[in-house]
């Protein structure tokens, strides 16, 4: 069974992102939403963790990235989705764990 993980906290404010990575198994997807999108930018200290998490797909909620002025700072290898894409991710995985 595959799991969709959502993270809505900045990796600099909370352990949620790190904890989530510990739970993201091969074949799962991590979707960064709300303040979670700060993990998705280039050159930040969370970027390497994303690069090293092989077997896990990373996505970011585009509207949240745009709202925070970081569209041009998106790191490679992270898929941008809109709310419809968020819905699709939920439908494509067997269950959802929100790392609140």
């Amino acid at each position: 069974m595959t799991l969709l993980h959502t993270v809505n906290k900045s990796p600099f404010e909370s352990m949620s992102f790190d904890t989530c990575l510990g739970y993201a198994k091969d074949g799962s997807t991590v979707l960064l939403i709300e303040d979670g999108v700060y993990a998705a930018t280039t050159g930040n200290s969370a970027a390497d963790k994303i690069k090293n998490a092989s077997g896990v797909t990373f996505a970011v909620l585009g509207p949240d990235l745009q709202a925070r002025g970081l569209e041009n700072k998106l790191a490679d290898g992270i898929k941008v989705v809109d709310y419809e894409g968020f819905v699709n991710l939920v439908a494509e995985h067997d269950s959802v764990q929100s790392w609140l």
């Binding site: 809505n8 939403i33 509207p63 709310y83 419809e84 968020f86 819905v87």
Partner: peptide
């Protein structure tokens, strides 16, 4: 789908995101 919302309006983005998600889910025929 079902949705659980743990935070009130304005203080956190949770309800906004849930609202956008709900609209998108309905628009997609769910």
């Amino acid at each position: 789908f079902s949705i659980q919302i743990n935070e009130g309006p304005y203080q956190h983005q949770a309800s906004d995101t849930a609202y956008q998600f709900a609209r998108a889910a309905l628009a997609a025929g769910h």
